[in-house]
Design a protein around this nucleic acid. Sequence first.
DNA 1: TTTATTTTTTAGCCTTATCTAAATTTAAAG
DNA 2: CTTTAAATTTAGATAAGGCTAAAAAATAAA
Lengths: 218, 218
Amino acid sequence: MFTLAEENYLKAIFHLENDYGAGVSTNAIADKMDTRASSVTDMIQKLADKKVISYQKYKGASLTKKGKSIAVNIIRKHRLWEVFLVEKLDFQWDEVHEIAEQLEHIKSDELIQRLDLFLEYPDFDPHGDPIPDRNGYIKPTEKKLLSKLKKNQRGICVGVKESSATFLQYLDTRKIGIGSSITVIDKEEFDQSMTILVSNKQFFITKKIAENLYLKTI
Amino acid sequence: MFTLAEENYLKAIFHLENDYGAGVSTNAIADKMDTRASSVTDMIQKLADKKVISYQKYKGASLTKKGKSIAVNIIRKHRLWEVFLVEKLDFQWDEVHEIAEQLEHIKSDELIQRLDLFLEYPDFDPHGDPIPDRNGYIKPTEKKLLSKLKKNQRGICVGVKESSATFLQYLDTRKIGIGSSITVIDKEEFDQSMTILVSNKQFFITKKIAENLYLKTI
DNA sequence: TTTATTTTTTAGCCTTATCTAAATTTAAAG
DNA sequence: CTTTAAATTTAGATAAGGCTAAAAAATAAA
Ligand SMILES: [Mn+2]
Ligand SMILES: [Mn+2]
Ligand SMILES: [Mn+2]
Ligand SMILES: [Mn+2]
């Protein structure tokens, strides 16, 4: 059995490996977990002893098969609970992450299996992130960052990369959400800022915004 | 904010005060929490510092107003989650306690308010225990232990005192549940054992069983 | 009212998960 | 190929929450 802290480390390492490739650095983990590098070293040594990561001093950490499976299961729980909170309890998509951070650590396989059924086996969470199935399989989806699109290209918003409340609220005020159709009207070579069209309105957005919106191009 | 361990102590002290009156002994708490008296002493000293219990050395502990309010809120969460598990996820009444022990510590007032609404403001949990309202008010209910009934008296089962899986499963095999009509056919003076009638069947039950079933007499 | 027993508290130690400060290793510059 | 800087690990502390063993206080017996 794994402690809450261990589970959070495994989840963080999973996301970092996913985003930047295998061999996650101590500092990268410390950054993501908002903790100190020395604390991370202690923990990854413990996780290596437990065979859920492979690790050599100074060389970074990678999840083993077992570690990956634990991480994916926590992510599955997190996303299912987010669906529950939005679909059943009528929370907004910017309100659910913190609560799901707690709920993801509830230990009961039966609970999650029944929750999944109750929610009618959803494929995506409220932020467009795929929900792993009970075997840990994550259906691959083709999605592209808005920042990769060129002038005149168009797509449907299928997800957000960051899901902080502030970013989600920013999107709310501009009526951008999962399912929104987005067209690049203009793109500035100099700073990668864009003018986009969303439901008949034009907005100016910075590179940072465009780098956090996933589209399915059409 | 209170830790998981602190919350569990407050809840235990609340239940002990409820069952046996104010001034809960160190050993009683140790027993209920399945821990050592020395650990309890440490914790009640800390809880006294935090003003959630009043405590003098060697004299036992009692919840303050603040402590009671925290305890009742945890109990409210526990029971609401149990309703959720049974009513929405189709768990059996003997399967929910352990999961609710975890869920009761999730911190979000908004979550509980919305869960309460989603469940349509239930008054009782699956074991017949009353659910405190958001102000901590517990509606008083008249219920009597089956062991207090005399020969030929009758009642409706409205709750169980113990809610261990083994006891609940024992009741299941005899088709005794919340709402069952129970009649005392005979009562043995010597050992307080009883013969009872439940849905046209007679059962022999020990004193211990009769002391864990709550009835509303009619 | 002494003595014995039970209850409670204290003392000292352990584990987990943190931290700061110092040492060490690796990577980057010159 | 040295020197410097950055990243990582180690050393030593701390706080929470638990334990055992011993001391102290309260109760019960004699
Ligand atoms: Mn989330
Ligand atoms: Mn999400
Ligand atoms: Mn329960
Ligand atoms: Mn219950």
